[in-house]
Design a protein around this nucleic acid. Structure first.
Lengths: 223, 223
DNA sequence: ATTATCTATAGATCTATAGATAATGC
DNA sequence: ATTATCTATAGATCTATAGATAATGC
């Protein structure tokens, strides 16, 4: 029998994914932050969505900022881990190596697919002015490292000599998936098309069919 | 002699650009919304920045939302007007006509330059969840029309058959300037490079030198 | 009479802390 | 003893309105 008085742990079925109360809070916060905005979402509304009291949130998180910090970190950690692994591979052109174009395509596809398929479109929170604070230094550093890895993989690749830097444009095209999704016009193809577009800007449009296959193989190998 | 009591119009030098009190309020709000966030900016802090009392704002704007509405509308109206003018031009290939590639380049360069050089980087507010409300219908409709015009100008242009849609990718690359600027890595070239990248994705990389010149001429002719 | 400002305030929040209560695990 | 919840609340906001005051323009 379940009692409902003070101090009793909740024994109800969680209405949210997540093994722990902490995960339920994160999921509820992600939904509210992305649909109503960070500053407009009160700690009370997060607690209501989880089915606990407002003050109980503070057992799991020190501040409201800390919830956002956790969520943002989660959006970048997977892609960064993959990009690091890819960047550490030998980059030559022999049979066992992966040339830069292939590696860039794999990173873009992996990263873009994550952004498109994540349960909540948390990327819309990346550019909140609040996030520039030192509190979010780790997220910001991770995102910057990811950007740098794109630049490294695309180094020297450009469709026109002295023209747009293919690596950074690929990063930007992948992140534009966030806004495509926010505008409700993302499709199943969007991530693949963004990765392709990045490679075209690297001057590798001719080799795309081969790069696509090799890039997918790389993802399969590393995940 | 200036008196400082109640009811007296301010006779001080305005510390902000703008001929009217309304313009000063808009400028202060733009600064605060972009540097501290919309929901985190109180009407009091806007008023303080202008040098009036909090309640005096409500003489000029019915609500705080109305301030944001005005600001957002201002970021898209110029580019939309230009894109409409360009889209209305004859689109053939004779000497007096402007082919689609040239027109798309001109729109992207004009629009991107505005985003890069505007006094405040208001584009970071485009994807606030708050902005999805019906209150902002006009801004949303204008931005959508602008996106559609990019698609129209890029119709049928793609670097690879069946590949990425060049028009919409150009729109996305131009809007990515907002986030480049927010990240502090925009340069004087950024808008021109975004326009170039859009044309490359349209499969017009070979013709870029000619298109750049024709696009700039088109801007000069229409502005 | 209209415009632009002010003072004062209603009424509704909001975040975070203090301290009580009870279940769990040693 | 530790963990997770609760009630209660301090203290600080926040937006928008009401109504007074004075300058300006007819």
């Amino acid at each position: 029998m379940t009692s409902a008085g003070p101090g009793r742990p909740r024994h109800q079925q969680p209405s949210r994914p997540g093994a722990t109360a902490r995960d339920e809070i994160l999921d509820a916060a992600a939904e509210l932050f992305t649909t109503q905005g960070f500053a407009s979402t009160s700690t009370r509304s997060i607690a209501d969505a989880v089915g606990i009291r407002q003050s109980s949130l503070y057992h799991h998180f020190k501040t409201k900022d800390e919830i956002l910090e956790d969520l943002l970190e989660g959006t970048v950690s997977g892609g960064l881990k993959f990009a690091r692994a890819v960047a550490a591979l030998p980059g030559g052109t022999s049979e066992t190596d992966s040339p830069a174009g292939t590696r860039l395509h794999a990173v873009a596809l992996y990263d873009g697919t994550q952004l498109c398929n994540a349960r909540w479109n948390l990327g819309v929170l990346y550019h909140l002015p609040e996030v520039r604070s030192t509190r979010f230094a780790r997220f910001l550093a991770d995102r910057q490292e990811l950007r740098r890895l794109y630049g490294e993989l695309g180094a020297g690749l450009s469709a026109v000599p002295g023209g747009p830097d293919g690596g950074d444009f690929t990063f930007r095209l992948v992140e534009s998936l966030i806004y495509l999704r926010a505008d409700g016009v993302a499709t199943d193809d969007s991530a693949a098309q963004a990765a392709d577009a990045g490679l075209i800007l690297c001057g590798l449009g001719q080799e795309l069919p081969a790069i696509r296959a090799a890039g997918r193989a790389l993802i399969d190998r590393l995940t």
